[in-house]
């Protein structure tokens, strides 16, 4: 599903964040990405989501080299992924329904199809009754679940989550992880960046640890 070959990323201000990174994720895998803050977890996710381009190396998604994808291709590739962010990134001027509907509108789904899929996604994250609420009126955990609903509403094959539990208490965080794990069961490849090692240990999934810009892979439960 994802393959990174000798990938390096250097920023003008901070120097090399990732160097000689090799990584492979099979379809349907659930993988945690850990490492100290500043180890490059977010950068790695941004490279896979094509938000950043690598300074060196190649990135393959589904067997296609996407390292130098064009702007128009990037939009298409990204519309087939689901992205989840620590700060939710919800549109504050639209209600929950419209936030979740956004990927469907972008992909041009019909007006008839959209409500059905949005409600299915909201049901999945347990927020069916909140579809008319404004994001600002929701708790942090609820906002994150809206973010997850938005990420899965168009049934992506790949789900990327950057510190999805960063602002949540441990009980809520575990709930979110378990929710994400459910998507793995229906065949979605899930990559979650998190520094919450005790929670990760409870999940019993493959863990990739980033250290000095390299990936130490294959560890379970770390």
């Amino acid at each position: 599903m994802i393959r990174m070959q000798n990938v390096a990323k250097r920023y003008a201000q901070t120097g090399e964040v990732l160097s000689q990174l090799n990584l492979e994720l099979d379809p349907g895998e659930f993988v945690f990405l850990t490492g100290a803050s500043g180890a490059g977890k977010s950068t790695l996710l941004k490279l896979i989501a094509l938000i950043e381009t690598p300074s060196r190396g190649n990135i393959y998604l589904n067997g296609h080299n996407v390292t130098h994808a064009k702007r128009s291709q990037i939009a298409k590739i990204r519309s087939r992924m689901g992205l989840i962010f620590q700060d939710h990134r919800l549109l504050q001027d639209r209600n929950v329904f419209e936030n979740v509907a956004l990927p469907l509108r972008i992909s041009g789904y019909s007006q008839r199809e959209i409500p059905r899929r949005v409600r299915a996604a909201l049901d999945k994250v347990g927020l069916l009754r909140k579809e008319k609420s404004e994001p600002i009126a929701l708790s942090g955990g609820e906002q994150q679940r809206v973010g997850i609903a938005r990420a899965i509403v168009h049934k992506p094959r790949l789900l990327l989550a950057d510190e999805p539990t960063g602002n949540l208490d441990p009980a809520l965080s575990l709930e979110i992880f378990q929710l994400l794990a459910q998507f793995q069961q229906v065949g979605v490849t899930v990559l979650v960046a998190s520094h919450d090692l005790s929670l990760i240990a409870q999940m019993d999934k493959r863990v990739i640890r980033l250290e000095h810009g390299h990936a130490l892979t294959g560890l379970r439960g770390d």
Binding site: A75, R78, M81, L90, I106, S107
Partner: peptide, 15 residues
């Protein structure tokens, strides 16, 4: 901000 979010969920320039 809104535009950045739309890009992140896969919107094209045209959209």
């Amino acid at each position: 901000d809104e535009i950045d979010i739309m890009y992140l969920v896969g919107a094209s320039d045209r959209y």
